[in-house]
Amino acid sequence: MNADGSDPWVPQPWRVRDLRRDTSDVFSMQMAPLEGVAPPFKPGQFNMLYQFGQGEVAISISGHAPDGGILHTVRAVGAVTRVLEQIAPGTVLGVRGPFGNGWPVEELRGHDVVIVAGGLGLAPLRPLIEWLALHRADYGRVDIIYGARKPADLLYPTDIARWQRDCNIRMRVTVDNASPGWPGEIGAVTHLVPSIDLDPAKTLAVVCGPEVMMRFTVLALQQEGMEQSAIYLSMERHMQCAVGYCGHCFYGPHFICRDGPVFRFDRLHGGLIVPEL
C-alpha cells in the first residue's frame, strides 16, 4: 500500500504538463495526476513512469512542479526514455510511487553537509538541496560539488545561481572539458574535495552519480578523514517491481528499490568494489 492508500502495483494516470529540454540528451517533465494532487514524497525517492505500450522505467523525483505537480528529469538513454523524450505535453503516463527510502534529512540535521553530484546525479539531489535551503538554520555549512562533462551538460543553472546567491550554500561547479572563458573549475569532482576544508568530526556527505565517480569520490572523502559511516550514496540498478519482490535490483543482501536507493556506505555490502554485485 502506498502512503496515500493507493495500490503500489497499479499505475495512476498522470498528465505531462510541460516538457523542457535541459541538455542534448536530458529533459525534464512537469507532471500531475489527472485526479487529486501528487502524493507527498521524500527527497531522494523515485517513481515508476509507465509509457503505455512501451514499458516502465524508474525515475528519481527532481522536485515539486507548479500546481501540485512533480518534476522528473530524465536522460534519454534506453528504449522507454527515448520514447518519453518525444512525447508532447498533454500526454498521459502511468505513475507508480513514490518508492525508496530517500536521503537522510534527519541524520544530516545539525551537521555540516557535503554534497557531491556527478552528471544526472544532481537530479535526485535537487529535492534534498531545496530541503536544506528551506530549513537552512537546522544545518551547518553546506558545500556542493557538481561535475559534468562540459558546460552545456550542466543541469538547473537557474537553481545553481539561486542556491549560491540566496541560500548560503557554497557551490562548486566543475567540468571535464571547457573552452577558454569558462569561469568555473576544470577537473574531476574528486580534485575539489580537498578544497572544501571539511571537518570530519561534524560533516556528513551525500554522493550521487555514476558508480565509478562515486567510488573515487568516497576515496577522496576518506582521504579527508571521513568515516565510511558518514557517507551516503544513492545506488542504481535495474528496477522493475519497485517494491522488493522481483529481485531485479538485488545488491548483495539489499533490494535497491525497497532498502535504498540511498545507503550509508558502511552498510553497502561490497563497498562498490565486489565484481558482479
Binding site: G119, R149, P210, A220
Partner: peptide, 21 residues
C-alpha cells in the same frame, strides 16, 4: 597520484550514462 587519477576520470567521461555491464 591524486592528480593522475583525477585526470583519468576526466578522460573517462565518467558522468556519461554507463553502458551495458
Amino acid at each position: 597520484m591524486n592528480r593522475l587519477q583525477a585526470s583519468r576520470l576526466q578522460l573517462a567521461e565518467v558522468y556519461a550514462h554507463p553502458t551495458e555491464p
